[in-house]
Amino acid sequence: MAQDEVLRVEGVSKVFGGLKALSNVSMSVKRGEVVGLIGPNGAGKSTLFEVISGNMRATAGRIVLFGDDVSTVSPDRRRRAGMSRTFQKVRLFESLTTQENIAIAAMQCARSNDDWRGEVQSVMERLKLTRLAQSYPAELTLADRKKIEIGRAIVGRCRLLLLDEALSGLTMDEADELVGVVLSLNTELGVTIVVVEHVLPVLVSMAQRLVVLNFGEVIADGAPREVASNEKVMTAYLGSKRGAFS
């Protein structure tokens, strides 16, 4: 097994009742990569996301995280091992402040000598949340709420960050800012990132590699430009052979 592989999905299937949501999906993410996971609605992106983060158990197959098989490990332990996630619809602790939201995760994941308080402050600075430290999530804009969620995800030795539609609902400017923040996490902190996203053009510029799911199967895996011109992908997305990203 390659040393620099942070996540490996091995032949994962997930069946709901009679419906096969994932069918023998395999993929691998290397340290430092930014990988985009795309596919039309109902392609199985969300299901795969839940299986990787541990909220759902796969019907078959394995999830290997940082070299360990975590297929039966609970989501909170996967988080403490260094994999964190955001949610499609932002989920914050609504009765707690911005600072507390981020600090909770930092406390859970800190080792005994870690300065988690300092880390919370620096993450808030990085995300420009410091002046909102004592605000409650309900008072904030969607963009700020998303930033809190990302802040909560990256504290505490996060090495692999799964982003679930982090850009949906944002204005162009807000989205641009967030993309910048996310990419800086990758370049400056060395966090490996997997993004599930609908907004394809953004992904093409953001990700180094795209994995395309359709009907629960991986139909393409490669560099963004290659994938974008892949015939299967175009058919899956538009039902026609016009460019998928135009």
Partner: peptide
Amino acid sequence: SNFGYQLQAVRDDEEAAAASGVPV
């Protein structure tokens, strides 16, 4: 306390709590 924050996190959102490393 940490335990109190864990409880509050679970109260507000169990899945988000687990995703923050709280043993629900």
